[in-house]
């Protein structure tokens, strides 16, 4: 028994003794030089990179595919869109789909409404945001912190809570209801969106980074707060303000629910509402949706946003990175 036990112990001990040098020598044992290992590591790296690129390119294709499909569908004939054999390029390019969009769909009217609402709601938001950001970042007054906390807390409330009552409020202003004019509709679509707590928060952070010395210097030069705000703070915060402007513009471009709720006349609606409207249902073909026209209109709505993105990519991506809320 003792012998067996001893043998067992020995067996246990031996590998432990052998293994230690093995670890150190493993490189020489496998017959690999340092160069060979470096090479194999490099190959591993290249394989890894190839897999990564393949993965990313595949997903990037998935991301772009809807855009591609939108464009080619907008150029297809109806028969080709619903054909059993789908084509990845239109056999006959139908520019006439776009002609239809501008003639029947009245794209220009929706576009005009959207741009008017976007410009005025953006201007209003910029003004209120600049004032509030300045007050919260620079001026000292009683109850500043509690008030700011209260503002931040309102961000937690889902907008749907507000929509019901805002509808009633706007109706009591006479902007919604019988005899609604275009101006009423504009007011109802613009005024409630003149305030954005999130942008106030964003701008306050930017304003706070502007050094105190500038404020003191302006004071020494006898500048008023008002002058300091417009001559120093606003120009210095220009990148943030551009981000806010573009995001707000995009928000209006995307807004659907509110215009749908408050407008009585389709002519007063915005671009998203027009897109989902009834202009593309072909009553002759049994209420089928005319996908070609619909997609052509979608392209027309998407292109301006793309142009905006191309020119202001830096501002949009930085603004979204910090803001992250559409509209």
């Amino acid at each position: 028994m003792k012998n067996v036990f001893k043998k067992f112990l020995k067996k246990e001990e031996k590998p432990a003794l052998v293994e230690k040098p093995k670890i150190v020598l493993s490189i020489e044992d496998s017959g690999k030089t340092v160069d060979a290992i470096k090479r194999s590591q490099k190959i591993g790296h290249i394989v890894m990179m190839t897999i990564t690129y393949a993965f990313i390119l595949f997903l990037a294709l998935m991301m772009v595919f809807p855009f591609y499909w939108m464009i080619i569908t907008s150029l297809k004939q109806r028969s080709e869109i619903i054909a059993t054999t789908q084509t990845f390029f239109p056999s006959i390019v139908m520019w006439s789909n776009y002609v239809y969009v501008f003639q029947v769909f009245d794209f220009t009217n929706y576009m005009f409404n959207t741009i008017v609402v976007a410009i005025f709601s953006t201007l209003g938001t910029l003004l209120t945001t600049i004032f509030a950001g300045f007050a919260f970042a620079r001026l000292k007054f009683k109850g500043r912190e509690p008030l700011f906390m209260l503002f931040l807390m309102t961000m937690m409330i889902p907008g749907e809570m507000m929509v019901i009552s805002n509808f009633i409020t706007v109706a009591s202003f006479g902007w919604v209801g019988e005899g609604q004019t275009l101006m009423d509709a504009y007011a109802a679509m613009i005024v409630p969106f003149w305030v954005s707590v999130f942008y106030i928060y964003l701008l306050r952070q930017t304003f706070k980074q502007i050094p105190n010395e500038l404020y003191l210097a302006a004071k020494v030069d006898g500048k008023s707060d008002w002058n300091f705000l417009w001559k120093v703070m606003v120009p210095l915060a220009a990148p943030s303000l551009i981000s806010i402007t573009i995001l707000k513009f995009m928000g209006t471009w995307n807004s659907y629910v509110w215009p749908q709720l408050i407008t009585l006349n389709e002519d007063y609606q915005l671009i998203s509402n027009g897109l989902r409207g009834s202009a593309f249902v072909n009553n002759d073909a049994g209420g089928q949706v005319e996908y070609g026209y619909q997609m052509a209109a979608s392209v027309c709505v998407t292109v301006p946003l793309f142009l905006l993105f191309v020119f202001f990519r830096k501002y949009i991506m930085r603004g979204v990175g910090r803001a992250g809320i559409k509209g």
Partner: peptide, 30 residues
């Protein structure tokens, strides 16, 4: 800054009115 106490409320007035009318009142009313 503290000299401008009333001015601060003037700067905040538009935002406070809008928040009260379109954010806080609707919350309570809903």
């Amino acid at each position: 800054a503290s000299e401008n106490n009333w001015k601060a409320w003037l700067y905040l007035a538009p935002v406070i009115i809008l928040v009260a009318v379109f954010l806080l009142y609707p919350l309570v009313n809903t």
